[in-house]
Nucleic acid binder design. Structure first.
Lengths: 147, 147
DNA sequence: CCCATGTCAGTATTACTGACATTG
DNA sequence: CCAATGTCAGTAGTACTGACATGG
């Protein structure tokens, strides 16, 4: 109950930032040879997991605004990795899907990323890694519940 | 040994990003009324913990380049929160320090940030929070060791 | 009317690389 | 000569806000 909690509080932001910074840098280095940025890779993963997502939906899942996601998406379309219909019969949302080239690019990029994630988790036991993910998720939910 | 590890690997990047995104957003909202950005606040904290750091040293501790830190620092100097000597007797490094106004601004901002960090850690026991920080640090070190 | 979406426009901040002079 | 620092310049990519039209 003493100052121990204060210390924890002061460090959680720092450790999170440090971890994300290291991961981001490592991912960026790994993706560069593939001509992808980290947000672009994230977008490809989202579309692979669930095709036909709209820009707005992709934005929510990547934690950015529609406008930012639109820029990322445009880059991927220009590169021929993502396709979107010019118009749709119903509604405004134009669902995006991976092109064959996009699927191939994601496949290659994913291999590089998996190596990084494996290295990162290597020092932890499987149980401990699982608990880490749960706790991270708990933190996030606590923050988002404050809105 | 089965596909369980694959699953963990696939999720660690996502959970880290999600947590950082939520924290960043919350901090940004909390700091805006104080006229500070997240990197600016981080810089003030670093200078409070250890005054007279050079731009390059601040950059290393904030995980950015000298050039980026210089921009952040210039904003803080313009706002009158940080002071740097025009020239130094010895060497090139110009140590930065908090001005009285900077100390006051940091003090106010820190209160807002501590609330956020407290909310974030509230769902975890002290022991579990401590373990989380240790594990995060371990992950980061594993990544950085790869360079 | 309301809400979500897509999109245009403008801007800010952070962040990077490259280059160069300076200091020890 | 070399390493670290500060700094100028240019650029990229992400991200934001504001605004407006459209579709259900």
């Amino acid at each position: 109950m003493a100052g121990g909690q204060e210390e924890l509080h002061r460090r959680v932001g720092y450790e999170l930032k440090r971890a994300q910074s290291a991961l981001n840098q490592a991912m960026d280095r790994a993706l560069r040879p593939h001509g992808l940025t980290v947000p672009q890779y994230a977008c490809l993963e989202l579309l692979d997991q669930q095709p036909d997502l709209s820009t707005a939906e992709l934005a929510r899942r990547a934690f950015v605004t529609r406008q930012s996601m639109n820029v990322v998406l445009r880059g991927l379309i220009t590169a021929g990795l993502v396709q979107r219909p010019e118009s749709v019969e119903h509604g405004r949302a134009r669902p995006a899907t991976l092109s064959p080239a996009g699927t191939r690019a994601l496949s290659r990029a994913r291999r590089a990323i998996l190596v990084i994630e494996k290295v990162m988790l290597a020092p932890l036991s499987e149980q401990r890694a699982a608990r880490l993910l749960i706790d991270l998720s708990t933190l996030t939910d606590a923050l988002r519940a404050e809105d």
